[in-house]
Each structure stands twice: as C-alpha cells, then as structure tokens.
Nucleic acid binder design. Structure first.
Lengths: 265, 265
DNA sequence: GAATTTCTACTGGTATGACCAGTTGAGACG
DNA sequence: CGTCTCAACTGGTCATACCAGTAGAAATTC
C-alpha cells in the first residue's frame, strides 16, 4: 500500500486510534481458565478437563491449550503431572516466593541499587519483627526460640546446617507475630540474599559471634525490652552487612579494573 | 513383571534408593538457558538464538524449546515478541509483582486467614513508611506529597481516578524512603487488596473523610512528628479496615448459610 | 467374596512438518 | 541519496503421530 510522498499519519475524525491488539490464542485460553477457577466453578483439588477436551471446547489447537496450562502451572494456579489430568492447586505461599526468586536474582544481579535497597528493607522489616516479638512473646514462644538457638549451637561444626539454623532462628522470631505474610516476607528476603551470594554468608569463624548476638536477641525478647531488641537486631544485621560491603567493594573494584582493561584492548 | 507372592520391596545393600527423577526436557533446556543468562554470557537486551537454532544445538524438538522459553518469559527473564528473536529482559520490579498478583489473588480467595494477615502486615509496613517519611522528608518531598494530595482532591467526582490518586498518595509516602524495595512492597500490598476486592474500596461518600485523613498525615509528616504520623496512619487504615470487616462479615455469614443449606439438601 | 494383579484406555510429553503472521534488512527503485 | 519493496528470517498455530506415565476397570487369585 502506498499513499504518496506526503502520506504520513492521517487524522480522521471519530476514528478511534486505539491500536488493535493482536492477542495470542494461549492468552485468551489462559484468561478463560483463570476466570473459571476464580469464579469458584473449580475449587482447589478439582480436576481440569484434559488438553484434548479443552482443545475441542475452545476450538483451538493443542499447543495453544498447552501453553496456557503451562503458564497457569508456573503461576502456581494449577498442578500438572504426567499421566493424570491437571488439578487446581491449593495455593502455597512458599512456592509463590520461590517462583519470584529466580526473577529477583536476575534483578539483583543487574541492579546493585536494588541489592542495597533489599538489604535496607530487610533491616527495617526484621527490626519491626523483633520489636513485635519482644512486645508480645509468650512463654511458649520463648521456649521455641530457645530451642531454635540450642539447635543452631549444636550445628556449629557443620557450616551449611549452621546457616540453615541461623535462618530458622530469624524465621522463628518472625513467627511470634503469628502473621503468615510477615513470616513469608522475612523468609523470602533472607532467602534471596542467601541465594544471591551464598559465599558471603559463609564467613568462617564468625559462628561464635553470631551465636552471641542471637543470644542477646533472645534475652532482649525474653525480657520484653523492645528498645534493647531493636538495637541488638540492628547491630547484628549491620555487622553482617559490614562484612558484605568489604567483600563487595573488593569484587566491584576488581571487575571495574577488568572493565577498564577490556575497554583499552 | 512378576516376582512371586512374597516379592514386596527388596532391600539390597549399597543400592542407592534415590529415585530416578524423570525430568522434562523443557526443564533441562530452561536450566541451561538460565545458566547462560546468569553467567553473564548474555546481558539484558541481548538477543537469544532463534527457536530453530536452539533446537538444533540441544538436539530436542521445537516444543521443548518453546516451553522453556515461555517459562522464562513468564518468569520475566526474557521477552518474546512475534517476528523478532527473544531478548534478555531488563528486570522490571513492577512486572515481577504483577506476576505474583494472580497467584496472590488465588491465595487470598482460598484463605481468609492470609487476607487478614496481609492487611495487618500492610498496616505495619505503612506505619514504618510514614514514620520514616516524617523523620526525613525534605522540602522537595513535602512539595511532591502536597501535589499528590492536591491531585487527589481534584478527582473527587471521578471514583476510579480518586482511588488511583489515593494509591498514588500512599506510594508517594513510601517514595520518601528512596528505597525501591519498600516502594514496591507498599504498592504491591495495596494493589493486591485492591484487586481482590475493588468493591470494598469504593465506599461512596467517604471521599471527604479520606481527604481529611490524608491531610492530617501530610501535616504530621511536614512537621516531622513521627508519633503523630504513626497514629494518623493507624487510624486511617483502621477506619478503612473497619468498613472492610463489616461487609466481609456480611458476606461470610451469607456464604456460611448457603453452605449449611447445601449440606442439608 | 475380597484382595490382588493385569491390562486397557486415557492423560500429558515430545517430535515432525507444515503453514500463517509479523519483522528486518538488503537490494531495487525513484 | 533517500525511499520503497520484497525475500528471508522470526515466533505463533495447527495437525498428526507416537512415547511414557496413571487410573480404574476387568481378570485373577486366594
């Protein structure tokens, strides 16, 4: 089609300029399935129709159906396993945060700013959690925390287990809130940092310091002293952050030098 | 195959009992692609090989490649568009939280407990944000907040715009922190609640109250009074929550009655 | 008759080949 | 030299076939 040299964009009155979006078939299928699930027509645990069945209902090919189903599966709305029909998933908070984990890693790797922000946000969050824990921890809560710390102490010689126990202790603090979202968030943030730089959490020889700091946290919580708990937490996390920073600076400097070298070559 | 009557499970020494997991081809492909991206071999913006190309390299069929790529796309690691080769995505925080949005909705719909926890977590978080804002808001920050509030005031007659402006005001408060993760989380939590129950945020006639409360928040921030800001925020959110609860109780009661009726029939 | 085994029909996973529908960029055209 | 055209890519969709697991009916065994 050719409208001559001066064609350009022609303005026609009353002509809606909203572009016609060409949707993928799979997207349409996905939306319909989501709607079916959300409307309550299908409840968690229920089985979806088979791919071949859906393919006839919607009058589209199997690839379109498959793509839609895979998409729902990776969003955690349904569960697919070989040989049996897909089921509506019972939502799982852990799985949810695991899924963004990958994306988060990608993000952290390409954005140092976000990494720092994530650390800061975590400090803010953990402080909130520990204050709350100090304010309302019951005898039962404190018993659990003591058990968690005791377990961590017993893992001193086993580095991976020690780190795991470390994370569990922090999770236990968040658990005092009784708020699943808070627990999840706290776990997720720690997890992301851990996944991103496992090496930085394995500082040899710092186990004793860590344990001492955890003990101080526990004491503060047990004595219901919010201010003391907050300070202990800030210092605990800041010390760790300090070590991060030292190592990161070293890495950054090295890669900057390498970058310069590459530019010259 | 038939091993006789007493067959059952036979224990053989030194035989590892770890089951052989049958991985889907697409998963293997996905992992390799992720590794390629994470190793820095491909940077954001770079183009991936075409599906047909990858298909030859990995010696698998096109469906396997496609499924892997779609999976990466829905995780936000790459961007696919018709006609051109896929590109490694520049990570987008908004997109990330949008993606869990669906899952979160599914979760909230099937777990009333989580809904309450999410609300509580939001209050905790917003309180933290507003305290921080009160503590460190600059003249520029306050100017922006005032503008946001002014805009909201101008939207009073347009309900959807008003709600949007309402959310923008809260986001602006979080923005004072300068911490992208905090902003994101605050936006996301509000968004989830909004998506879950738009109807509950459209309480007719409450616009004036909302504006007054926002004004109080702004004043507290402007005068750098943390305590006052906290109290204003708690009351602001609690008032809204109170209305939520009334409507929710009504809905819950109704559905409970319906449930009983169904059980009887 | 009840528990077990066996088998068949169905489900998802993968491969192939074909064609449609956008994008791009090199080369023809002015 | 800029513009336009078009061929050679790319992803999107379909049809078909076959492989590989499951579940449930049917046959078998006790």
């Amino acid at each position: 089609m050719h409208f001559g040299h001066a064609a350009g964009i022609i303005s026609i009155p009353h002509l809606s300029t909203q572009p016609i979006v060409r949707r993928k078939l799979a997207d349409e299928v996905r939306d319909r399935l989501i709607h079916t699930i959300r409307s309550g027509e299908l409840r968690p645990g229920d089985r979806l129709p088979s791919e071949r069945d859906l393919m006839e209902r919607f009058e589209v090919g199997r690839p379109a159906i498959r793509e839609a189903m895979q998409s729902l599966a990776s969003a955690g709305l349904i569960e697919i396993s070989h040989g049996e029909r897909a089921r509506v998933a019972v939502p799982d908070t852990h799985g949810m945060f695991d899924r963004i984990g990958q994306t988060m890693l990608h993000l952290l790797q390409t954005s140092p700013v976000t990494l720092q922000h994530l650390k800061d946000a975590r400090v803010m969050f953990e402080v909130g959690m520990v204050r709350m824990a100090a304010a309302r921890a019951s005898g039962e809560d404190i018993r659990k925390l003591r058990a968690a710390l005791q377990h961590q102490r017993s893992c001193m010689s086993n580095v991976p287990e020690f780190v795991k126990a470390d994370m569990a202790f922090h999770t236990a603090i968040a658990g005092v809130s009784g708020n699943s979202v808070c627990v999840l968030l706290s776990e997720a943030m720690l997890d992301w940092l851990f996944e991103f730089r496992r090496d930085l959490l394995r500082i040899p020889g710092s186990e004793l310091i860590t344990l001492a700091e955890h003990e101080r946290l526990l004491d503060a919580i047990a004595s219901h002293s919010e201010a003391e708990a907050e300070q202990a937490m800030v210092e605990h996390l800041t010390r760790a952050s300090e070590r991060y920073r030292i190592l990161e600076d070293a890495i950054a400097t090295r890669s900057m030098l390498r970058g310069t070298a590459e530019a010259k070559s």
